[in-house]
Amino acid sequence: MLKIKNIFLSLLLSIFTSFAFAAGEMHEPMHPDWSFQGPLGKFERAELQRGYQVYTEVCSSCHSMDLLSYRNLIQEGGPEFSEKQVKAMAAMFEVEAGPDADGEMFMRPAILSDKFVSPWKNEQEGRISNGGAYPPDLSVMVKARPGGADYLYSLLLGYEDETPEGITLDDGVYYNIYAKNQKIAMPQVIYEDGVEYTDGTAATEVQMARDVTAFLAWSAEPKLEERKRIGFKVIIYLIILSFLLYFTNKRIWRDTSH
């Protein structure tokens, strides 16, 4: 009976370790160090601000972020732009509002409480402008893909100058090492000096990919810092409480033979 229990335990261990990254048609992504990973992880303000710049200048022409509002850019745990800055940034976009007294819809500059403006009126417009493939919304993209931030980062950098031999690509399909079946409908968008960072950081491909991925990670988990902060306190509290209960329990049972 002891033998079977041991077999059981070792089987358990091997099964759980095999749940690791599903191989097959996916290339293992790169694993850079992220400031926000791990139990004590935090976002870096400058990184998120640069990431927002990359999103706005590079990605937002095709990808919406419907779940974000401009006011989110001010809140704690995020890029933490100032209110004045965000009001100005938001005002650069126009949203449809109304109807007015004549029953007409009209355009007005975006304010803090507005959601991020989408590049498309609807999904169909997005599809037709991109050869039938709708550029997905990026609000929770980091949580919507196995591999998360590592995968997205790798994908952005996974394009090759030359398609390897033996691979034929349809129109509007591109080669990317990290994409499923190494094919993806999105062209390379991250190029050296693609943006001019306002804080003067050199806009290398790696830098831009990092920054925008961190921004997307924040967008998917804006409460990450608060969550880990509270979590730390909760676990310490529970550990102390378990010690107190352990000794209380011991004391209660001391006089009973069991």
């Binding site: 509290y237 529970l238 102390i240 409480l241 107190l244 209960l245 000794f247 209380t248 004391r251």
Partner: peptide, 16 residues
């Protein structure tokens, strides 16, 4: 001593 332990555990739980 017993009461102190019980009191501490009880109040710690209540705070939580």
């Amino acid at each position: 001593r017993r009461d102190f332990l019980y009191l501490t555990t009880g109040s710690f739980t209540a705070v939580g």
